[in-house]
Amino acid sequence: MKLNVLLNDRSFGLEITVSRVEDLHPHEEVIPSHLEHLIRAFKDSLYQRNPVIVDSSSNIVLDGTHRWAVMRALNYEWIATCNIDYCDPLVELDSWSRLFRPPRDINLDLSKVLEGLEIEPISFQEIGNRDLVVIIYNNVLRIRFREILEAFKKLRFIEEKLTKLTESKPSYVLRTSVERHSRSGIVVLPPRPYKEEVVKIVREGHLFPPKSTRHVVPARPMGVNIPLKFLRSKLLDIELVEEFLRQRSPLLLRPPVLLDREYQEAIIYFI
């Protein structure tokens, strides 16, 4: 079902449909524990509630890698997708920053964390969109890299060391809130990738580490509830899926909306 969503006088096109699981390509690795949790939840479910967001021309899963991996692990033939035009400037791409809040009594030896990396101290104002930086209590350290994938590999290296050192997992925060968070902890801010880089990396057969990119689509369909029994069948008539969807009533929810997480985009909730 093709939908045109009018947002501030600009029309954004999307298509809610089903795609073959094997035709899609993830761009990020999955977190094994999260995947296990989702597989268990899916086994109890009758529907795929929310479609994964896919670039219609490259078939890259932009948002919903874990749900795609669940469907593949459970041998589903099809997956509900929301196909969009990745090139549309209304689709934004950024990265997730990592925030660590170590206990006060922990003595952090950062030289061990950043060992082997080329670093240079810079000021807050000097941080650019394409920088990989570590901010420790207002001290900003820029880490050199050559290619975007290398930056994210370094990000993973730092993340793993900090997780071990602080004995805590990071929380994922927006670029815009990094300055505020840096007063209370350690922030690792990855560079903002370009869309072309994401496509190129996937085409070359590589993957970003988990939770690298943050895709913001201007409108996101949710609650489509496609029956899993449809998605199991070898042959599936798209017309049947469209007619099924026509039974639902879409509601427009203006952002910000807190559902399973905070959404900054308009939600088209099928109720």
């Binding site: 009533s249 879409p250 509601l251 427009l252 929810l253 203006r254 909306v257 088209i268 909730y269």
Partner: peptide, 8 residues
């Protein structure tokens, strides 16, 4: 709560 708008 959120304000919603029925589209159909």
């Amino acid at each position: 709560f959120v304000e919603a708008k029925g589209l159909l």
